[in-house]
Design a protein around this nucleic acid. Structure first.
Length: 575
DNA sequence: GCCGTTTTCGGCCCGACTGTTTTCAGTCG
């Protein structure tokens, strides 16, 4: 319900904006939409407890609207707006170049109600005749429309990150370039990103930008000047991704990096702090009148504003400025803390590398230990192992562990949690494993009570170490299960079961807000790649940034523990 | 429409770019 309601609040804001309503009133609806999206408990339950106004941005009026939705499934303001305006208008705001004013104008003057209608008036030339528009504006809108269709919205973190790294490396190699940084939502480790923002310090700005726009792989050039270049690059699968490069002077590099890293909401809060000190914060620095108080480094800005330095992943206006969280922010988990990967597959089930290949690649990453976790017998599509094959596989892993030095290979399994809540292997087989990952792969669309009960039942099993990809979501492809997260967290604490933070960029499961909910509740997390090939072991990075986005500390992650301590923790739950 | 170490009313972030403009509105990040 949270997601649906969040969408409605966003739509109310869109419609109000097109109507030309008070901008602060519009922002109030947006704020609530964002809070609802981040909310880890069920909003209906919060409403039942009478605690709606505890949600950031929810006052008396918004609480009434939420209550109305919980009780009747609709909101009067929303219904009234839709009675006045076509439902297709908010969709037009997605198009680069179209804002609320132009949407309203096209609708009122030309009767444009949706994307199809907009295309018609572009082609007929009528749009260009509207006051305030012209050939150039329409060209921009048409290009925006084409880009939207090609880009298909947001790009997953794991797709954008390697592309950005490669481009940054190529900019770094250009003459006159002193420094390059990736900014934007990519630097914050968001699970999907809109475009790539690169920042560079260069003595030859114009040439740097020109060279950037001529890079191999560039599909189209949107802008090319002395301080900014903007291009699109092709993606596997036919889509496109926009990449912006900005040239910034050294004395304001930190300010620009802070500014272009965002998030917008975080920056608004930071600027409010500057205003209270009678200063001004912008992309050129922290300024007192004309005088630059800070700006060369990001850290200097936070220090001058008397707030603890906030790592990029936490810059989402989720409470990161509170003085009492400073210590927590300073001890977040880092990639270097990870001592092993406890969920990976091999050719025995549906992986593409052997036990030995996975082990050697893991050892090269500096890990102390790994665990091989193959699919269980009911996962036929994934070539799940029968009990007999599993018995043999355990022997194979033990043999490899003896043979390969410098790394401990543990025996695990990714055992299916069946539709009835039972596990796919008997306890005596699970007891032979050093640890057990239990995952749901079927019946993901069952009702809340069922998927929750299955997860709880799996945690009650004394051999289950962790729940694998707890929500079952596939980003942009499959919705998460409708779990009662509070119940899951409570049972995880009670049974000393960990939750996986699956680091695969298609999953990132649990996601950031649930990771935070988990560690706040005292649940242990385990960041694992679920790698099916040696290359995929590197996805650990995505898991770590997602954990950081969830404010997860080093000591709250199972696989940051040295081997001996890990074994002790694993033994704790067992009979 | 929310919110409070300048409180219950009067604030609520900032600048650049672009195109269509005789002084600025709209969009974007």
């Amino acid at each position: 319900m949270n997601k649906e309601l969040s969408g409605i609040f966003d739509q109310i804001a869109d419609l109000l904006e097109i109507q030309g309503a008070d901008v602060f009133r519009i922002n109030s609806y947006r704020r609530v939409a964002r809070s609802l999206k981040d909310l880890t408990s069920d909003v209906a339950q919060v409403a039942g407890e009478g605690k709606l106004t505890d949600i950031p941005g929810v006052g008396k009026g918004q609480a009434e609207r939420i209550k109305e939705f919980v009780e009747s499934g609709k909101i009067t303001v929303h219904e009234e707006l839709l009675a006045k305006m076509p439902a297709g208008l908010p969709g037009l705001l997605e198009i680069p170049g179209m804002g609320p004013k132009k949407v309203a104008l096209a609708w009122k003057e030309l009767g444009v109600e949706n994307v199809q209608g907009l295309k018609q008036v572009i082609d007929s030339g009528k749009l260009a005749e509207l006051p305030g528009l012209g050939a150039q504006s329409v060209k921009k809108i048409a290009a925006g429309l084409a880009f939207l269709e090609k880009s298909g919205g947001r790009t997953p973190l794991g797709v954008a990150w390697p592309i950005a790294q490669d481009l940054a490396e190529r900019v770094r190699a250009l003459a006159g370039v002193k420094r390059v940084e990736i900014a934007g939502s990519l630097r914050r480790g968001a699970e999907t990103i809109g475009d790539v923002d690169l920042l560079c310090e260069s003595t030859k700005g114009k040439q740097t930008v020109a060279a950037f726009t001529r890079f191999e792989g560039v599909r189209s050039v949107l802008a090319s000047g002395a301080t900014k270049g903007s291009v699109t690059v092709g993606l596997a699968g036919g889509g496109e991704l926009q990449v912006d490069l900005r040239v910034v002077p050294a004395e304001s590099f930190g300010a620009a990096l802070q500014y272009f890293t965002g998030s917008k909401e975080h920056n608004v809060r930071l600027r409010e702090r500057a205003v209270k000190k009678k200063w001004k914060l912008n992309e050129y620095g922290l300024l007192e009148g004309e005088r630059r108080v800070a700006g060369r480094t990001e850290r200097s800005i936070y220090t001058k504003l008397k707030v603890p330095y906030v790592p990029p992943e936490l810059r989402e206006d989720r409470g990161e400025f509170d003085a009492e969280v400073a210590d927590r922010l300073a001890h977040l988990v880092e990639l270097a803390d990870i001592r092993g990967d406890l969920h990976m597959h091999t050719v025995a089930s549906d992986g593409r590398s052997t036990i030995e290949e996975m082990a050697l690649a893991s050892r090269a990453l500096g890990y102390e230990y790994i665990a091989i976790a193959e699919h269980s017998k009911s996962s036929a599509i994934a070539n799940g192992l029968s009990i007999e094959r599993m018995e043999q596989h355990i022997e194979d892993i033990r043999e490899a562990d003896k043979r390969i030095k410098g790394l401990t290979i543990l025996v695990s399994t990714e055992v299916d949690i069946l539709s009835n809540g039972k596990l796919d292997y008997p306890d005596d087989l699970l007891a032979e494993c050093d640890l057990v990952v239990a995952s749901i792969h079927s019946g993901l669309s069952q009702e809340r009570s069922k998927v929750t009960a299955r997860t709880l039942a799996a945690m009650d099993n004394p051999y289950v170490t962790m729940i694998g990809h707890p929500s079952g979501r596939l980003i942009g492809k499959r919705e998460p299960m409708d779990l009662d997260w509070e119940a899951v967290m409570a049972r995880a604490v009670e049974t000393r079961t960990a939750l996986e933070l699956n680091a695969s960029w298609q999953r990132l499961d649990v996601k950031d807000v649930h990771a935070r909910q988990a560690v706040d509740a005292g649940v242990m997390l385990c960041i694992c790649t679920d790698a099916h090939h040696t290359d995929q072991l590197l996805q650990m990075y995505y898991g770590v940034v997602t954990a950081r986005r969830g404010w997860v500390g080093q000591d709250q992650v199972l696989n940051t523990r040295p081997k001996a301590q890990l074994r002790k923790l694993l033994a704790r739950k067992r009979p």
